[in-house]
Every structure is written in C-alpha cells, then in structure tokens.
C-alpha cells in the first residue's frame, strides 16, 4: 500500500504551478487577469457576464454548492450594489434567486415540494446526488465548481485554457467513445465534457459579443470570485495591516535605538 502511494507521490507544493503544467498536458495559456496582483479586484461586469454563462451553460451539469444567492450581492461580489449593503434586500439578487427552483420540504403530508428560490438559498444542484450525476454523464462526475480555480494549480489560467483548448485529436489518435480531445486537461488528453462553449452560445444582456474566448474569460472571472469571494476584503485589509506594521516597526526601531543608546553592542 505504502509503496504504491509513495511511488505515485511527487511534486512540491510551492513549485507546483510550473511542474503540474509540465506534467499534465500542454502548458496553460496565461492571461492578464483583473484580479491578479496585490491591488487586483474582480472585474464586476465580466463576473456578471460570467454568472450568465454559468447559469445558461455550466449549471446544466455542474453544481456551485457553496455559493448562496446572497453571496452574489456581498461586498466584492459580482452583483454588489452599495445601495443595498444587505444583499438580501437587493432586488437583483432576489430576482436571480427567484429564477431557480428549490426543492424544499417535507410538507405536512411528508412530500417534498418545489418553490422559487429566496436569497438565503444556495445555488441548487443540477442532480439529486453524485450517482445521478454520473448516470446522466456516462459515468463521469461533473465536479462542483465552487472551488475549481483553487483546486487546480494555476487554476484561473488552467480553466481558461481548458475551455478554449478543444481541438481535433492528432492524427492516428483514437478517442474513447464520448470523449473529446483537449490537450490542457489535467487528467490526460481525453475529457468527458464536450466543448461547452460555442460562438454565441449565450446572448449577453450588456451587448458584449459572446465569442468563445470572451465567454471563457468571463466565466473564469466569475468562478475565480466563487472560489475566493472575500479576496477584495482580504487584500484591502492586508494593505491596512502592512502599513500599520511598517509604521509600528519604525516606531519600535526608534524605541530600540533609544533604549540601547548608552550601551555599546
């Protein structure tokens, strides 16, 4: 047992990015993301479009189980509106929630019933359970997307590369039935998910042209937010803390010099 596991084991956590990319298929296509860097924030318009892509394309098979509707209207979230600091009052959030059907219950007679979503609900799963999901997808389980960009090395670039990376298999390669060729897929070159994005698959409400590249970027922006919804608060707090600590270090260094002034050391 141990030997098998050990022989499987590799890879530094800290150098993971490069090594993973090299180990599993093609190297990720790198994008300049709005959320990168110490000042990075989410591009709200892109993330809103990304939510539309998720809702109209991905949600048919992929759950987003850790995201509640009110999360969508939190500070730093795609649909945040400063007029509604409490996202549960935000009419946009309420309207989004209402579009989803929630299975609730049991009622007095012991039956489950359907009702429109409210802001407190989480985004519902497309399948009743994992087995049902597998049964509908020829044995492949469409993973939950709440953490997908953090659960893959260099996740945002990886996801973008994957979504835009479908191509015809190289000559002589025989794909297993139902599989598609994608050189970026971390589990090998064959992926059970068919190319999800096609030109004009969604019609953006803001008039942006829905090219595959655009939709991929938008949905990555959205899913990166979904995986790390508090990033903007975190970075903002980080700056305050770093500046405070820097000033405190200066003061303490002054104190240190004052205390040690008469001492040769």
């Amino acid at each position: 047992m141990l030997k098998r596991i050990v022989s499987l084991a590799i890879i530094a956590s800290f150098s993971a990015g490069a090594v993973f990319a090299a180990g599993a298929g093609a190297k990720n296509k790198t994008q300049d993301w709005h959320f990168e860097g110490m000042f990075g924030t989410y591009d709200k318009a892109a993330a809103q479009r990304g939510f539309q892509v998720y809702q109209e394309v991905c949600a048919a098979c992929h759950s987003l189980k850790y995201v509640a509707f009110y999360n969508l209207g939190d500070k730093g979230a795609p649909f945040y509106d400063p007029e509604y600091p409490n996202p549960n009052d935000n009419p946009v959030i309420k309207a989004i929630a209402k579009m989803f059907t929630i299975i609730d219950g049991p009622d007095e007679s012991g039956d489950m019933f359907e009702r429109p979503g409210i802001t407190a609900d989480k985004i519902p799963n497309p399948y009743a359970n994992e087995m049902a999901a597998k049964a509908s997808n020829m044995g492949a389980f469409p993973p939950d997307l709440s953490l997908i960009t953090r659960a893959r090395a260099d996740g945002s670039n990886y996801l973008y590369s994957l979504l835009t990376g479908y191509e015809d298999p190289p000559e002589g390669m025989k794909l297993s039935p139902g599989m598609s060729y994608n050189p970026y897929f971390s589990g090998g070159n064959q992926i059970a998910m068919g190319a999800p994005l096609t030109e004009g698959r969604v019609e953006y409400t803001d008039g942006t042209e829905a090219s595959v590249d655009q939709m991929a970027k938008d949905v990555v922006e959205f899913l990166t937010w979904a995986a790390d919804p508090k990033m903007e608060q975190r970075k903002r707090t980080g700056w305050v803390v770093l500046i405070y600590l820097f000033l405190l270090a200066l003061l303490l260094y002054g104190s240190y010099r004052a205390v040690w002034r008469d001492v040769k050391h």
């Binding site: 405070y244 000033l247 405190l248 003061l251 303490l252 002054g254 104190s255 004052a258 205390v259 008469d262 001492v263």
Partner: peptide
Amino acid sequence: MSTPVESDEPTRRDFIHIASGTAVVAGA
C-alpha cells in the same frame, strides 16, 4: 546605562516609547 522608563516625568526620550506602546495597544 539607565533604564529609560523610570523617571517620574516623561522626557523627550520617553516619547518614542509612549508612541510605540500606544501603537501596540491600538493595534491589539
């Protein structure tokens, strides 16, 4: 080699310690 924070009246020299101490307490 006098210990600085010992006189009754705060001196100019103590100011830095008071500032540091205040900053630590505020941060906490």
